[in-house]
Design a protein around this nucleic acid. Sequence first.
DNA 1: CACGTGTGTTGTAATATACAACCATTCGAA
DNA 2: TTCGAATGGTTGTATATTACAACACACGTG
Lengths: 158, 158
Amino acid sequence: MSGYDDSREEGEDREESVETIHRELTAFARRARSTAARMHPELSLVAFTLLAHLADQRGCRATDLAAHYMLDKSTVSRQVAALEKLGFVERRPDPDDQRVQVLHPTPSGYEVLTTAHARRQEVFRRRFADWPQDDLTRFAEYLVRFNEASVAYDASAS
Amino acid sequence: MSGYDDSREEGEDREESVETIHRELTAFARRARSTAARMHPELSLVAFTLLAHLADQRGCRATDLAAHYMLDKSTVSRQVAALEKLGFVERRPDPDDQRVQVLHPTPSGYEVLTTAHARRQEVFRRRFADWPQDDLTRFAEYLVRFNEASVAYDASAS
DNA sequence: CACGTGTGTTGTAATATACAACCATTCGAA
DNA sequence: TTCGAATGGTTGTATATTACAACACACGTG
């Protein structure tokens, strides 16, 4: 690790790292759904994400959800309908615009989020138990940096 | 960054890092499909992953794919059928066991992988252009470590 | 007012997936 | 050696997720 192995080009190291990063991120993405299912069995990953966004934003419109997650409005409509049926979301009229429904998590919806958050923290806490804080901090920082670059790229590509 | 801010518990830093890591990984997973679609428009993420695994393993059985990716054998069967129809996979009999089909990428399948690999390298290369090699190496290492822990956890949980 | 735009729902179709039933082959034990 | 259990794979069926299109209703501006 120290010094420079001149039997390798610098670019080979980069390529190998990039390859590993891609492989591991993809592996994670593949597991995301089943992981999510364990974390909050009552909700699909999408439904959960939408609900979490509502909590994050202190309520928002279906259109906003669709735009933010690049989903069709019909998809959001049905997901929200399901969430409402489960009692996790309520629709409030927008006094300024009768077309709009402002979506909010219900108390029961907040409870689901809180429970999932606790469970997630617990699982991740165990999983990261032997990681020094420095590594955790750096890992988080790398991910943020990577995603910022990706979002910028996605925006320019579409 | 230097020193220790004693207005915060050590655990708060950890929790915040863990939260960030989870959020960013989830954000990545959400984008994975559309990213994959850009990288290899002719194949779904699953189909591509299976094909890549075949190349990785120099051929393997459908059952191995199912086990490795936690998919039902019927799902794999149909995905493989689609890949075969596209001419990216061929089935070879196993001389030792007539039940088994050993799956291999065809030349055309390898070509798809090579092209996708090149495109991916290019995109990631640009995305990581301003990352020092040290950070790349560490990022890759973190992801590997994280996924190893996750796989171990998944195994123990199921 | 009328028309174009924005918000949301419903009909329809495509796709992905799991589960179950099934067939062919293999393996092991009586 | 023969039969039953296990293994590898396919197909039928059901469900879920998603997008696109058509629609209904509300808003705002000419």
